[in-house]
Design a protein around this nucleic acid. Structure first.
Length: 440
RNA sequence: CGGGGCGUGGCGCAGCCUGGUAGCGCAUCUGCUUUGGGAGCAGAGGGUCGCGUGUUCGAAUCACGCCGCCCCGACCA
């Protein structure tokens, strides 16, 4: 992409409404634009990141055996009346009437609808386990949206729903999602820690929030230090195998957010030197809820014994749009965003320091063509800005690698490669750059 | 929803207290010069001062009402 033909509305000054760093940087780097409180338009750079995140989530869900569907944003009220949630949900749910005066709502979540889909088609335990997920916009009319996309009213969420014959099956499904989440967040360059969470009226130990540690995080967390650098299961993890050791290894160590924190237990279970008190951002939650929806909605399957039983369910959310903010909170410096490569809007920034100079133009054209041909996503700054402005913009938008081409180093056949994360710069020959970034 | 604050060219702000018809920086446009870390000079364009009502000879400025947005708290992916 040539910057001269792209749409990148960056701001030099920080808009007054943004307080936290990710919100400020998202506005300054031209990722989003606020349209109303908690409601954002995604600009070209932002949608690229959002889609990268979405794709990683999708791949890991698929790997874990979940199956993608897409449910609508607008739902009829009937399903919610069946489960009693139409009244229970309160003003956080956005209610809408259509032209026939029918009661509709903009979905804040989809348990009711997915259960309806399930019960319409599934009759036998032989069809289980089943896990259906979708990635869709949700709306929760928060009293007080804040922190940009971290606490928006409209947000993009991946929500998966598992269906099993019994509690043991539900636990296996839960473990799959738990492991998939570890992998998903790690692939985005995030360190997340599963922490005990409120389980609601169902009780039990089957609910965890996945927390990114970040200084600017909204909630206080308490954990055993060994959880922080615990290795994440690899791509070869077999989701059909028994995953409970992976889960057990983590749940054995103390980790809780302030809502469920128990200081006495924390001190009893964790040696003083290993106690970590930090701040974190919740980016996902896994939750077992049993027959909470299947019972009222009569979502039953016939078991091997010929008897009908309500299915055992769980739901598993990931805040996709929130992750954009969370990643920035976890990865930035004074100059701007530092995207982890897997979610970066572009792979490489190519900076032409002197547009119009025959030699730099030619070198840039050559690099741009070769990198693009090699499948790299390149943002080529071919504008007439001054060098300082170009550097500042590229640092701000955080593309992992910058290749700087200017007359000074090109005189000796070299270009400069800068790694955004470390700021390290090295001069290498044009050919070496081609080799490194466009080689087979 | 309780408490606090803000709304003035695209962005960041001053002006408001003490009413007299709007200013600064950045950005934008034109020209010249400049070109390795957010350039310089010269010129130009752009604002129903959130909306409404009232007070007044006169309202960005004072009063009342409404709307929007932000922050702290209670609540949430």
């Amino acid at each position: 992409m040539r910057l001269s033909r792209f749409f990148l509305p960056v701001l030099k000054e920080t808009p007054a409404e943004a307080q936290i760093v990710s919100h400020r940087l998202m506005l300054r780097a031209g990722l989003v634009r606020q349209e109303a409180a908690g409601i954002y338009a995604w600009l070209p750079l932002g949608i690229r990141v959002l889609q990268k995140i979405e794709q990683i989530v999708r791949e890991e869900m698929n790997r874990a055996g979940a199956i993608e569907i897409l449910m609508p944003t607008l739902q009829p009220s009937e399903l919610w009346k069946e489960t009693g949630r139409y009244d229970a949900y309160g003003p956080e749910m956005l209610r809408i009437k259509d032209r026939h005066d029918r009661e509709m709502l903009y979905g804040p979540t989809n348990e009711d609808m997915v259960t309806d889909i399930f019960r319409s088609y599934v009759r036998s335990y032989k069809s289980l386990p089943l896990n259906l997920y979708h990635i869709q916009w949700k709306f929760r009319d928060e009293v007080r949206p804040r922190f940009g996309v971290m606490r928006g009213r409209e947000f993009l969420m991946k929500d998966a729903y598992s269906f099993d014959l019994d509690k043991e099956g539900a636990r296996r499904s839960y473990n799959k999602m738990y492991v998939a989440y570890l992998r998903t967040f790690a692939r985005m360059g995030l360190k997340t820690i599963p922490m005990r969470a409120e389980t609601g009226p169902i009780g039990g130990d089957l609910s965890h929030e996945f927390i990114v540690l970040a200084e600017t995080g909204e909630s206080q967390v308490f954990l055993h230090q060994d959880l922080i650098d615990m290795p994440v299961p690899g791509e070869d993890v077999d989701f059909d195998s028994d995953l409970s050791p992976i889960v057990a290894e983590r749940t054995a160590l103390y980790a809780a957010t302030s809502d469920v924190h128990d200081q006495a237990r924390f001190e009893a279970e964790v040696p003083e030197a290993k106690r970590v008190t930090a701040r974190g951002i919740e980016v996902g939650q896994v939750f077992y809820f049993g027959s909470k929806y299947s019972k009222p909605m009569k979502a039953v399957v016939t078991g091997p014994d010929g008897k009908d039983v309500p299915v055992e369910g769980g739901s598993y959310g990931i805040g996709v749009s929130r992750l954009v903010g969370a990643i920035i909170e976890a990865s930035h410096d004074d100059a701007g965003i530092i995207w982890p490569a897997p979610v970066a809007p572009f792979d490489i920034a190519l900076i032409n320091l002197k547009v119009g100079d025959a030699a730099t133009d030619a070198a840039c054209d050559k690099l741009y063509a070769a990198l693009t041909r090699a499948g790299r996503d390149v943002l080529y700054d071919d504008t007439n800005e001054r060098p300082g402005a170009k550097f500042a913009t590229m640092d701000l938008i955080g593309i992992p690698v910058q290749i700087v081409v200017g007359p000074r180093s090109l005189a000796s056949g070299a270009v400069e490669v800068k790694t955004r994360a470390t700021g390290a710069k090295e001069e290498i020959s044009l050919d070496a750059a081609l080799n490194r970034f466009a080689g087979s």
